[in-house]
Design a binder for these strands. Structure first.
Lengths: 212, 212
DNA sequence: TGCGTGCGTTACCGGTCAGTAACATTAGAA
DNA sequence: TTCTAATGTTACTGACCGGTAACGCACGCA
């Protein structure tokens, strides 16, 4: 992901076949932010882990906060890609889409734990984690997280409505609680050994109860 | 809470009626840690906010990490006190205890936002938030959080079993997802304006489905 | 051939972090 | 009155933080 290779007319003075510095920095930062938290990872650590140095970092990013914002937006984009991929096969069948979503949720940890990120253990929701670390006076980052969570809520309520729930808001919100809880418990219990294991069945129970 | 007043033979050189320095520091730290996060709050800030200085801090606490550990253990203690208070009236009726627990959960934010803590907005689960910030090599703090979350899981499963659920583990875990999700969404949505508002009803739906 | 671009390197700035040393002050207890 | 425990005050250390200045070098394009 996000790997522009240094080749062609835009790549001077670079090892051919190696990703451009900016992309290496960004990918490294995403890994480190997710694994260790945003505050815990310094600019120096990102740069050297990416095989470069701080100066090259600041040639690519105006500030650490700008990188963090890009990190959050990228994670959100990845999330919606995952979401759309999970529901696309059941287009037109909202109830099955909900079920597919929560079935797929169990795999989200595995995705995280594999190629993209060096984490052996899922560390929960990157945006949600950021909400813990973001200072309250930082409106930019706060807004990114808030709009992301609001969109999740909106989508789940919409699915609940389309599925014909008697109280679509209540069902959507309940489903969101499950999902957020799934993320949160993965912070403490390795991958799917925690309560997340029950998430798919719990979602079905909630849906059933709101439809019959 | 935790306010030992400087009086009697153990209090020399102190303003009478004023809480001892250690307690002032500790209470201040709890507030600041919860509101801004652990990493974001420095020892200097705690001390000066408590009306003292760093030296007095280090006379009372060997290190910041020791204070953090005490903070987490204190928050856990408070949580179990809240829990026990929520279920005591329905002793012997596990199903009603579960319902009482989730009814009371909506008030938890209000409790946080009031006297004890200076937060106008609930900032979610203090232990869960800490899990985001704690470095993975810190076993002491990690263990505190893990055992806390494990105990929640254990208690909810136990209640589900006592209530006669067909699959008590699944019900207990589902309830835990709701609870954790409730905390997590409170980080982003002010107090009870978010999906938490649906938590009590969702819990009832899950319980009903597992009992009938 | 020369120029510009992408990148590496070194050194630095001011600020903050956790933690310590040394000394002064207060007030109660003996 | 003297001793002592609790607290305040100032100054410091070494490490790290985010961020910047200045310089060098290698490459590909014009």
């Amino acid at each position: 992901m996000n790997v522009r290779v240094s080749a062609g007319p835009a790549a001077k003075g670079a090892v051919p076949g190696r990703p451009r510095v900016r992309d290496r920095i960004f990918d490294t930062a995403c890994e480190l932010f997710y694994r260790h938290g945003i505050r815990a990872v310094g600019v120096d650590a990102i740069a050297s882990e990416a095989g470069t140095n701080k100066m090259s970092f600041y040639r690519s990013f105006p500030s650490k906060d700008d990188l963090v914002a890009e990190y959050l937006r990228d994670q959100e984009k990845e999330y919606w890609a995952w979401w759309d991929g999970a529901v696309v096969a059941d287009a037109g069948h909202p109830r099955r889409q909900i079920e597919a979503l929560f079935d797929a949720f169990l795999d989200l940890a595995r995705i995280r734990a594999s190629s993209d990120c060096g984490c052996k253990v899922s560390r929960g929701c990157p945006l949600g984690n950021a909400a813990v670390e973001i200072p309250e006076d930082n409106q930019t980052l706060g807004e990114i997280v808030h709009s992301y969570k609001s969109e999740i809520r909106k989508r789940l309520r919409k699915l609940a409505r389309e599925a014909g729930a008697r109280e679509p808001e209540a069902l959507g919100d309940a489903l969101m609680l499950l999902m957020e809880g799934g993320y949160q418990t993965r912070l403490t219990f390795p991958n799917n050994t925690g309560p997340v294991a029950a998430i798919a069945k719990a979602a079905r129970v909630l849906v059933d109860a709101h439809l019959n």
